[in-house]
Every structure is written in C-alpha cells, then in structure tokens.
Design a protein around this nucleic acid. Sequence first.
RNA 1: GCCGGUGUAGCUCAGAGGCAAGAGCGCACGGCUCAUACCCGUGUCGUCUAGGGUUCGAGUCCCUACACCGGCACCA
Length: 635
Amino acid sequence: MKEKFYLTSSIPYVHQLPHLGNSFELIGTDALARYKRLADYDVFFLTGSDENSLNVERKTRELNIDPQTYCDQIVTGMQEIWRALNISYDYFIRTTYERHIRTSQDFFQRAYDNGDIYKDFYKGWYCVSCEAFYIEDELTEDKKCPIHNSEPEWVEEENYFFRLSKYQDKLLQYIEKNPDFIQPQIRRNEMLSFINMGLRDFSISRASTKWGIPTPLDPNQRIYVWFDALVNYLSGIGYIDEKEKFERYWPADVHIIGKDIARFHCIYWPAMLMSVGLPLPKSVFVHGWVHLEGERMSKSRGIYIDPTAAVREYGADPIRYFLLREVPFGSDGDFSWQRFVARYNADLANDLGNLLNRTLSLAKRNFDGKIPKPAEQEGEPDTDLIELALSLPAKVDDCTNRLAFNNALEAIFELVRRGNKYIDETAPWQLAKEDNAERLGTVLYNCLETLRFIALLISPFMPESANEIRRQMGLSDDFSEKENLDSLKTWGGLPSGITLGEPKPIFPRIQVETGEKPAPKKETDADNFITMDDFRKVDLRVAEVLSAEKIKGADKLLRLQVDVGHNEERQIVAGIAEHYEPDDLIGKKIVLVANLQPAKIRGVDSYGMLLAAVSKNDIVVVAPDKDVPLGARVR
RNA sequence: GCCGGUGUAGCUCAGAGGCAAGAGCGCACGGCUCAUACCCGUGUCGUCUAGGGUUCGAGUCCCUACACCGGCACCA
C-alpha cells in the first residue's frame, strides 16, 4: 500500500478574493502535492474557506444580503482562481458545511469533557477586524486597535474559555524535542519566545452573534471563528463522518500557512489537539509574503495582482514558475514585472522552450518524424549529460521535500542548459550532413530523453507545460499515473519509434518595448485615483443644445450645436443617437467637457463632449438639477 | 528597548575554517545556424558592510559598530 501524505493550505477568509500574494501559498502547496503524487504517495491535499467570521455577519448586514449567499459567491470566485492557477486540491472544505459544523461541536465537547473549557465572565475590548480581544494595555493611547487603528468594541459577556495556559510546558517540550515541527527556524524561534512569555487562556465563544457555529453546551454562544477554523483540518478528512479516511490521513504531514497566522497553528492548534488527545501534525511550514514591486500587496490599497488577469495574460505556469523559482518559500519575496519577463524569456523561452523546439525540429526532419533508436553512447558529452540527468531526481526530491522549490527548479534548469550545450557539442546538423544516421539517432534520442526527464520533473511546478512538452514529443500527456519518478532511475525509458508531435514554441518570447510595462492591464482602485489637480484640469460647463441631427452613415452619432454661454457656440459630436431622438435634445441643458482636444469623428469636427451616464443597456445624458446660467462651471 | 535574521560581482543570490571567491541575469567579444534575433564558448566586474579578535589559515567562528528586514514589547 502506498504511503499517505496529507497536506493542507490554510483556508482563506471569505472577506475578499485572493490576490497573487495570497495565491503563493496555494501554488506552493500544490507543487508539493503534485510532487508527492509523482513520488507515488497517496496524497490528500486539503484547502477550503473560512466563513464563520463576525465580519461576514457585519458586512452582509450592511449590504443587506444573506450571509450564506455572500459566502457562496466569494467561494465560487475563489475556486475559479484556484482553477485558473491549476491548484489540484483533493477536497475543498467550507466551514459552513454541516460536516464541519458537527466536527467543530464534537471537538468543542471533547475539550470540555476533558476539563479544558470553562465558562467565565468576560469584559474587554474586541477588535472586529482582528477577531481578537485586547486588554486595556494593549490598545493605543486613544483606545484604538494597535493593528487596525480602528475603534474596538467594549464587550462584556459570559464566554467559554480554553485552558491554553495548561499546555504551556507541554508545548514548549514538544517544540524543543521536535526541531522540525515549526519551519523555517526563524518562525520556530518566534513561537518559542512567545510561549516563554507565558500563555493566557483565550475566549473561544461569542454571545453577540447569530452567524457561526453554536456551541454544543449553549446554543446562544457561537464558537469563536479561529477555534472552528482550525478544526477544518480534521473535518476535511472526515473526522466525524469518514472514520476510516480520517484514520488513514491524520496526522497531517504538513500544514502550510502564512506568517500572520503562525501563532494559531503553532501554539493554539497543537494545544487544542493535545486537549482532545489527537496526535499533532508532523510539521507546520510558515511561508512569507510576496510583495509587488517592493510594496506589500493589499487589495484595499490597490497594490496587488489579480491572479486571473495574470494567468490570462501569461498562462498559469509562467506565473507559478516565477514565484516558485524566485522566492524561497519560507521567506518574503518580491514580484516585479521586469524580473518576471527577464526570467520568463531567459529560462522558459530561451532555454527550455528552445531546447524542446530545436530538438523536435531536428528529430522530425531526420527520422521520418519518429523517435530514433539510440546506438552506443559515445564519449563525454553523452555520459556527462546522462550522469547529470540521473543525479537530478535525488536533488529535486531533497529540495522539494524541504519545500525549497526554488532550489529544485534551479537544479532542473541546470539540466535544461546542459541539454542545449549537448546539442552544440554534438552538432546534429553536421551529423545529418555526414549521413551519420547512427550517431545522429543516438544524439537526438538523448536530447528527447533529457526532455522526458525535464517534463516529468517540472510537472509539479508547471503541470500544463509538462503535458505540452510530452504532447509535442508524441507521448501521452496523462503520465502521472503510469509513469512516476521510478522511470527516471535509468536512462533510456523513452520508447523509440513513437511519432513526434508538431513542434510549436511553448513559451513565446515576451517582447517588451522600451518603457512599456509588461503588467497586464488591471482595473485597480489605485489606477483610478486621480489628484484634485488632475480633476481641475477638466473644464466642465453647462451648455444648451441648440440643434441636433443624425450624422449620415453613423448609427450612434449625433451632431449637436450647443450654446456654452458668453456668446459662444460650438459643434460637438455625441455617441447617443441610439438612445435619444435629435428633437428631444433641443433646448436641453447638458454638461460639456469644454477643453477636450478637438477631434474629427466620421468627418465631423467635434469641439467637446457631453457627459452621460452609461449603464449596460442605456445611456442617459447628465443635466443640471435646476436652471443655471449657460457656461456655469461644473465641479 | 529586547530577540532573531540579513549585509558577497551592475542586478538576484549560492558559498555552514583550508586548493588562487561562485551561479544565473546583464554587458563585451568569438563560434554555430538545428532553434523562439535563439544556443554554445571566452571574457568583464568583487577592499566578501566597517573595525577589532581567535587561528598556521576566516565571507565562513567571536566581539563591536553601521544599514536594512522580521518578531515581540513599549512610547506616542
């Protein structure tokens, strides 16, 4: 029976759709999951959504929509993003699923039965954004949340508390005895010092909300969102309703999380598990942030990359490759479009793409479009290449198991470069001229076999490209089942005689004009901000329509004569003919952009434009609310 | 303020005491022409942040300083 491997990403809040920074976690987790499948593990990759937050209740009350409907929408969007990025999770757990609710309640009950949950009267400051309580001392001078600088709320209610303090020593011992439990080291140190400062019991229920999971002891109390969120790692593998599956997969081999939630996963969660008597996850891996051009990604500030847009522009694999190759998974990294293009062109287009392309074109031309049969290997170029290829899987295995994806990819691309060098050394085009078919066959076979190695090894990181390489080589693209890492133990696994596919550049070079930004067009808020000065540049004036007529040969255009006051008349062209009859406009007061650069539209001069509200299927001319003198400034 | 990390070629980074300091990108020159103006080769550039110390020998260990980053605390 296969060895199991259970890995999880965190489950993002449903507050907003993930940006590319958030996606880093799923991309890394996915790479590990795919690698483990390739290594013939029985993998279970869990992700999901965290929905029981107080914020959901607030937000949906404001928007006047049903919380569940709201969550459904966000979750759908989230799953679309994961699909675009090719995230191969095995199950998506939502914390509003019944199985999760029951699991959380069961968990709560067990902890209670073990004496680790007690009721106490709670008075304190609560920050909704943090979902956390603060003691007086922790607030800022003017009584604001130290993180969000927002007004916390005074909450006074009876809550259930979890005896975290009881586990302080046990936790400390555990982390000390298991040096790899928290990775990387820096996070481990942080957690240790946090524990050493002393752990306090924490409140795990709320009385003030109707959204969320009722505690089993008192239905008026809802389980604190963090307490139930962590339980997803159990409910997602059937703790309550698929015992066998749960037994098989628990404990998790690794929880992959962001550094902002390290404390919950490295301290609270292990203590909770100790309380109910379940084994602890084997490790928690804390990854860093991906910044954008040096700035922290933030949707609210408009500094982010929309994963879907990025994928649409460049494909999922180049994005995945860049992040995994450029950013050590445990550290913070930076996404820069300039460096993205540099990496893409150098590694993917020039090295890998071109290696495939030139190999195929040589092979196709010379061997009737089929994979040639190799003869004896000859001399250094051959043995050198083969040795490197055969040594690669172990290196990749080591790096990937340590989640050092950047090093794994670096090693793989050494082979890519070696492949290109091999072609130059052996000069197959010369061999063709010399009619040395035997040697030529061997050389090209070696190139193709190298590509088979590469395709298999990059498949966890760039699944689509791996498939495409194999398709072009005439191999089945569905190889993960039949062909795994074992097929890289010896040279020559590639069968001869297969008809090669059509060579086509898999990574077309990205041409960047000087000064042009390669970033995909995005509609961020930041892009929409203009300064007051920007706005003042626009000269808006009230004008009156004197005459209007359709422009011949144009469905949408009207020619208008307008009176802009101060004895000035102008001709403008407006694209509203589909929604207004010319006669209806005459005498109407409108708002005119008076200093717009003149233009010739359908041969008609236009000296300004009128303002109109544009919706999906209507255009409505903007008019002053009351009568004003012509030429009045609008601002 | 406390704890931790980082500081190596123009850029991104590898180098956990020992042959004359490396890779990729960039740049220059040369080669090739199968290929996505690509590939291959050669070369270019470093007071390894600064100062002190340990050692036969230090990017590599210790101390101090500076800069940047992170965690925690505190002040506002």
